[in-house]
């Protein structure tokens, strides 16, 4: 055997390469089983960036299904609650050009919270079934109420209500939500030398 290999160095090289191939193949095969990632990590990453309003304005039944659609190559500009910020973050993650929000799916607006006018509620439980995050509390023929901290402001409970007793009110009205604005960068419009002012 040894003499055969010595007389045909080509065989020696082939056997060595074959051995290496089998060895690495076995290691990789083992690793792919041992360190398998559950689910699609890209979907989870995209889902992290979506606002989790679960409103369905994108045409998918929730944020995760939309994340799956984006991972499969869907448009990234269908999420009005996330707005331009989410689109930019998604474009950054997926390394594509950021687009403007698709107006067909709605406009970007301030986040809301649902309030049930409790005197008018007839206890039909329709809104409870519509709420994607189980944020409405109540039972049949008893008054319902919204757990304001859990409400995502998705509007899905408004339409099923037979007596129209649900209001969508802005979430961030109060002084505790106020924050400083970035100053206007006015260095471009200001003048550096006297003649700039005359020209402007």
């Amino acid at each position: 055997m040894l003499t055969l290999l010595q007389s045909y160095p080509l065989f020696a090289a082939l056997i060595a390469l074959l051995g290496l191939g089998l060895g690495f193949g076995a290691v990789l095969g083992y690793a792919s089983v041992r360190f398998r990632t559950e689910g699609n990590p890209l979907v989870d990453q995209i889902n992290q960036l979506l606002p989790q309003t679960q409103c369905g304005q994108c045409g998918h039944p929730g944020c995760k299904p939309y994340a799956t659609a984006i991972a499969e190559g869907g448009a990234i500009n269908k999420c009005p609650p996330g707005g331009q910020e989410t689109i930019d973050a998604l474009a950054d993650l997926l390394d594509v050009e950021p687009q403007a929000l698709d107006a067909e799916h709605g406009e970007e607006k301030e986040p809301n919270v649902a309030y049930i006018r409790e005197d008018e509620c007839i206890g039909c439980t329709k809104c409870i079934q519509a709420c994607p995050v189980d944020a409405i509390l109540g039972a049949a023929k008893l008054m319902h109420t919204v757990i304001a901290d859990e409400c995502t402001g998705c509007d899905l409970c408004v339409e099923p209500c037979p007596v129209d007793c649900i209001d969508m009110l802005p979430r961030k009205g109060g002084i505790e939500h106020w924050r400083w604005d970035l100053p206007e960068p006015n260095e471009n419009k200001s003048s550096i030398i006297a003649t700039d002012r005359a020209a402007a």
């Binding site: 679960q54 995050v133 859990e150």
Partner: peptide, 9 residues
């Protein structure tokens, strides 16, 4: 907030 909403959803 969004993490909570995701968990609840």
């Amino acid at each position: 907030r969004s993490d909570r909403s995701r968990d609840r959803f």
